[in-house]
């Protein structure tokens, strides 16, 4: 598992995550902070993959970077829509740089996608090695040892839903 690629990827994800995290603080407009946090959460999902935890990485992207952050963006757009206004940038050359970078990624990805074959994809999810992160092992422990806490979280979420609806509902004019 130890390889130069692992190390390189770790530093890549770590630098991106840290830069995005610092950017969350530096942005004046909260909308951009939220977008930056999404970048940070996605990079941390990459680190989870390096830690051989594909399930947690997937949940991180779908639930955290997906659902929770969309909720945040909804509320930001509801309460503070002007924070999403584009910062005017007069530097035209940035457009050309963006196009060039996009083309470079396309050229870089094309041979990879062309060589993609499903049969060659490593079956991480139920690898015979039974790594710590394998979904099967995770589920076995979750639904055996942690069954009661798992059921309790459903009650917690129900309470949260009811609480959110009650709090955010407009007061009836009485």
């Amino acid at each position: 598992m130890e390889s130069a690629l692992d190390t390189a990827l770790f530093y890549l994800f770590a630098v991106v995550a840290m830069a995005a995290a610092v950017n969350v603080l530096l942005q004046r407009r909260v909308f951009y902070s939220a977008l930056s946090l999404i970048v940070c959460l996605t990079s941390v999902a990459g680190v989870y993959m390096l830690l051989q935890s594909p399930f947690i990485a997937t949940v991180q992207v779908i639930v955290y970077a997906g659902a929770i952050m969309v909720l945040f963006l909804f509320v930001i757009m509801l309460l503070d829509p002007f924070s999403a206004e584009a910062a005017r940038d007069k530097r035209r050359y940035l457009n050309y740089v963006a196009v060039l970078l996009g083309l470079a990624i396309l050229i870089f990805l094309y041979p990879l996608l062309n060589a993609y074959e499903l049969a060659h994809v490593p079956r991480l999810l139920d690898s015979a090695a039974g790594g710590v992160g394998s979904v099967r092992r995770l589920a076995a422990v979750l639904f055996d040892e942690y069954l009661l806490p798992f059921e309790l979280t459903s009650v917690l979420i129900l309470v949260a839903i009811v609480g959110a609806v009650v709090l955010a509902r407009r007061q009836a004019k009485a």
Binding site: S53, I56, Y64, A67, I68, V132, A160, V166, A168
Partner: peptide, 28 residues
């Protein structure tokens, strides 16, 4: 040990609940 990942799972559930209630409070 797989327990750490179970904890992450629960932290994510609590974070989701906390975000929902917290944002409702923000709206109020």
């Amino acid at each position: 040990q797989v327990h750490g990942q179970i904890f992450v799972f629960f932290v994510m559930v609590v974070a989701a609940a906390e975000a929902a209630v917290g944002l409702a409070i923000t709206i109020t």
